[in-house]
Design a protein around this nucleic acid. Sequence first.
DNA 1: AATATATTTCACTTAAAGTGAAAAAGATAT
DNA 2: ATATCTTTTTCACTTTAAGTGAAATATATT
Lengths: 120, 120
Amino acid sequence: MFNEADKSYPIELVAEFLGINSRTLYYYEKFSLVCPLRRGRKRYYSKEDINWLEYVRELMYEHGMNLRSIIILIKRRDAVILDRCPEDIVLCFKNYLARKETVARKINIEGEDDNVKDLK
Amino acid sequence: MFNEADKSYPIELVAEFLGINSRTLYYYEKFSLVCPLRRGRKRYYSKEDINWLEYVRELMYEHGMNLRSIIILIKRRDAVILDRCPEDIVLCFKNYLARKETVARKINIEGEDDNVKDLK
DNA sequence: AATATATTTCACTTAAAGTGAAAAAGATAT
DNA sequence: ATATCTTTTTCACTTTAAGTGAAATATATT
């Protein structure tokens, strides 16, 4: 479905691939669960973004983890929590953080991390 | 709060200790999340029951795991899922299973496991 | 300017988790 | 045996998480 040559994909395509509503992707973005690159107003999801999202869904539907705890993981990014995580989660999480920094640097301001919403 | 000499505790005391409603304990029992010993109609929770319950709460509120996934873990009791679990969960889970068998043998019928309700 | 597309907002839906209160069922005392 | 007290069960309700539909807004394109 995604060919290697392309580097990024529009939201509708990603939503379809993940089998979710595009609104859900906007929703996730509120919590900085994913940060697609933006050219103008339009969002472009990288292959890594998509992998991360697949992983988040797996955490939710196979590990039975809730969004809140994933968000806390992201916001706190501390060893206390990571200590108790299975290997693969830690790995995916670190990749996500790395990617996030790259995008942040690429786009504009640095580290302006905390207009991140909490779950209501 | 619990002295070593006693072997079991009534539901209200356990609920208070865990900081939850006793109805929640009945609720958990519907899914076989815990199986207190019963003398007559009254429930008696062992120290191990209480540890397991504390652990379940921790899974929910610190790991962000949902009840369903914990219940699936219990019902399936298969390696596929246990493989992906942190050490301590596997341990607690195995203790729970062992305890459950003991109680089952002690009380009456064996292995009559599956009048266990699913989450609606 | 008109049309098309992407995003945002708002209110709504569904399901999980938990709980309050009354009814029911067992015990215990009189 | 009846009354009283306690534990359990049932039923309907509440709260919150997660997600979504549809209209309104904003931006781009012809």
